[in-house]
Amino acid sequence: MGLLGAGTFGYMEIEHWNFVDSLFMTAITLSTVGYQTVHPLDQSGKYFTILLIVGGVGTVGYAIATLSELILEGHVYKLLGIRKMDRKIGSLKDHVIVCGYGKIGSLVIPGLVERSIPFVLIEENPQIAREAVEKGYLTVEGNASEEEVLKKAGIERARSLLVTPSSRPADSVYITMSSRLDNPGLSIIALASDPKTESKLLKAGATRVVSPFVLGSHRMLLALTQPTILDVLDRVVSPESGGFVFDEISIPESSRFDGRTVSEFSQDLGIKFHIIAIQSKGLSRLVLPTAETIISARDQMVVIGTREDILRVKENLGLPSDLYEKGQSFETA
């Protein structure tokens, strides 16, 4: 386009031709089709034409070769694929962002897929990012510590963020702090193997910090001292479980059950399930309820029951059930 413009302008200035004749002369010169000149050329016009042929024909040939290479190697399709993925990510809301497809991320993501929970993966390694795209995962290639990468993943619209351990612990702290500033209501789950990093992550704004070593030690102790309890826990939290499952239910605002007792709540619904813990909004401690425990709006209840019964409870409360087909809530996941 630059050559066409320069050639057209040159003929108009040197030969004083009109725009159409100048454009036509430039086009037949650059394409080397061999037509005769539109009008006779004076000496200046001939010199200009020589320069246009020497500089322009080579550039046009290079442009055609480059375009052919792009098409043959699939770069155009890749570019279109990236833009399509960007549009999909841009349309997401209340999704999960997973920082890193490492040991933890590669185990968490299949669980999100199993539960039909929308998510975006941020991966710095180009090869791993390509593999994630091939698996059909919405992926942003880049370092999650960069603000532009987080924004591209939709941090302002996300519901949860999983910060996996990094080779640079300071990155995890910065990602947590930056994300908290961009989205004050975001639920940030950070993983830390170092107790010092754990305290820094909490100060930076992490909602919860999980230590793989602490969790592993708890499971090993259960396996050693109370193996049956461990088997039961594994069974009820497994997506493949065919029996009872754990789930988390939130009492909506203006619910008719606000101020009712646990006994009245269960009897009114007429559904078999058990409330094993209640956490009031804004309080960290769990209440082990009795039949007379009062339920309030925005309480989080941990329940156990069959998948079908828990789905019926959620339907009665007016909670969305499309994400709970596997019997696992978003918060539990």
Results as ranks from 00 to 15, higher is better:
I155M: 02
L3H: 11
V236L: 09
G305F: 12
V113D: 11
E69W: 10
S241H: 04
G45S: 04
E240I: 03
P165R: 07
H16E: 11
G100T: 04
D268K: 01
A277Q: 05
S250H: 12
Y174D: 00
I276E: 04
K84W: 11
T176P: 00
P195I: 03
E264V: 03
K78V: 01
G61T: 08
G270E: 05
L150R: 00
I175L: 00
P320G: 12
A27L: 11
K88G: 06
G61W: 09
N183E: 00
D309M: 08
I109A: 04
G242M: 11
S284E: 13
G100Y: 12
G61P: 03
Y101H: 03
P252E: 14
L112C: 04
V245L: 13
Q267H: 08
E69D: 15
R208A: 04
N143T: 08
S22F: 06
W17M: 09
L319R: 13
G56R: 12
P227N: 11
V133F: 09
V140L: 08
Q127N: 11
L233V: 15
I278E: 11
N18Q: 10
M85Y: 09
V262W: 14
I175K: 00
G34Q: 05
A153L: 01
I50L: 02
L52I: 07
S91M: 07
S167L: 05
K203R: 07
F330S: 13
N125Y: 01
L215Y: 02
V96I: 14
E331D: 15
A129H: 10
G10V: 01
L201N: 00
I189W: 03
S241R: 02
T59M: 09
S238R: 09
G56N: 13
V120I: 02
E73R: 15
F213Q: 02
L233F: 13
P118W: 03
L72C: 04
E253H: 12
Q279F: 08
L67M: 02
M25E: 06
S193G: 15
F257K: 02
G74K: 08
L221P: 05
F330C: 12
A27F: 06
L80H: 05
K93N: 11
S160Q: 10
V173R: 00
G318A: 15
Y101A: 10
D171I: 02
T306K: 06
S241Y: 03
V98R: 05
E15S: 07
G142F: 06
E124G: 04
S296P: 06
I175P: 00
S160P: 11
D231M: 06
L51D: 10
